[in-house]
């Protein structure tokens, strides 16, 4: 059984350091398995957040050798046996302890997004939606809220001061999913421009690169949102939109 050196961040907001642990890994193991083995045998109080261990809940986000990743979907056979593997907490949020951070920022931002405002139903009281009209939004609904996109985003990663005026990629796709929702009647353009700070994104696509669900955050959500914001400031486009459907699908 191969043995790896895991260089794990241990500490709290006051002090911390990377500690080396030697751990065995069996075939097929992922980083989270090895962290659990560490917990069970060498460091029972090692703080780590996890739930499903199958890439569905988005709890076990960390920075592994500097890369924002889910620990449960990072296989140990990615790494060479001799080299230490660094496991650090995601950096954009305040540390609680070891690998656990306070991601409360995201839950606060979530509350600011204006919710669905429903259009009237069909005569039978239900709604009709065509699959092709919801494919794009279903992509956004795949989000597991791992917040890796938030972690990697330049606007807030090392700029605490931007956080009040910037919702971040996770909430841009939330915003886009509501804006493109066939049953929604609310206009969130002004909200996107001001409160959510869509304009601060400079389209470096880092969020898209780290998304474990492969959501095209930049191309499919942020750029269309930016276009809407720009359009809303142009009186001719604004008039045109009044006459056409507000819910045109961006490409």
């Amino acid at each position: 059984m191969p043995t790896f050196t895991l260089r794990v961040f241990r500490g709290d907001p006051t002090r911390g350091e990377f500690k080396d642990y030697r751990v065995e890994a069996e075939e097929g193991m992922v980083v989270l398995d090895v962290i659990h083995r560490l917990q069970a045998t060498q460091a029972t109080d090692l703080a780590v957040r996890w739930n499903c261990k199958a890439g569905k809940c988005g709890s076990c986000s960390a920075e592994i050798d500097g890369q924002p990743r889910l620990m449960c979907m990072t296989r140990m056979d990615l790494f060479a046996e001799g080299e230490p593997i660094t496991v650090a907490p995601i950096r954009a949020f305040p540390l609680i302890r070891d690998l656990v951070t306070d991601v409360g920022f995201n839950f606060e931002k979530a509350k600011t997004i204006p919710p669905l405002r429903l259009k009237p139903p069909e005569p039978d009281g239900t709604y009709r939606m065509m699959q092709e009209d919801i494919d794009r939004i279903q992509e956004f609904h795949k989000c597991i809220e791992c917040f890796l996109c938030q972690d990697v985003c330049h606007v807030i990663r090392d700029h605490e001061e931007n956080k009040p005026a910037f919702a971040g990629p996770r909430f841009f796709i939330k915003l886009a999913s509501l804006e493109m929702h066939p049953l929604d009647t609310r206009d969130r353009t002004a909200f996107g421009r001001t409160t959510a700070g869509v304009g601060l994104c400079n389209i470096t696509k880092c969020c898209t690169e780290v998304c474990p669900e492969g959501i095209h955050i930049t191309d499919n959500a942020i750029i269309p949102l930016k276009e809407r914001v720009a359009d809303s400031l142009d009186p001719i486009v604004w008039l045109l939109r009044k006459f056409r459907s507000q819910k045109t699908q961006p490409v």
Binding site: D12, T44, D45, A47, I96, D98
Partner: peptide, 14 residues
Amino acid sequence: RAEGARTYNPGWHT
């Protein structure tokens, strides 16, 4: 037993 402190301590929770 629980080792360490009360801050986010999975051993204690377990």
